[in-house]
């Protein structure tokens, strides 16, 4: 599963696209959050981030697979 990273998240994981091993079972946004907060202790506040699936904001129950375009959206600050 590939996860796009931006802003502070990109700096924490130190890459633009985080590749998660296919053996890791992640089937919902909530499972992705849990995985990331374990993998990257600095992301303990990951609940402040939104998750986008196929370029739309998703909720924790949204089902995801490696076919989806997934992105972590840290708190936005445009304008």
């Amino acid at each position: 599963m590939k996860v796009k990273c931006f802003g502070i998240v990109k700096e924490i994981v130190n890459q633009e696209i985080l590749e998660i091993d296919g053996n890791v079972k992640i089937s919902t946004v909530q499972e992705l959050r849990t995985f990331l907060s374990k993998q990257f202790p600095e992301m303990s506040n990951i609940n402040l981030c939104m998750v986008a699936v196929n370029q739309s904001y998703a909720d924790d129950h949204t089902v995801i697979s490696s076919k989806d375009e997934i992105a972590i959206i840290p708190p936005v600050a445009g304008g």
Binding site: M43, A52, I73, V76, A77, G78
Partner: peptide
């Protein structure tokens, strides 16, 4: 809108609204 802003100060830089 997914846009992020980094402020560059005299002694460092940080992402606005993001306090991990």
């Amino acid at each position: 809108v997914p846009i992020w802003k980094k402020e560059y100060l005299e002694n460092g830089s940080y992402w606005v609204n993001a306090r991990p």
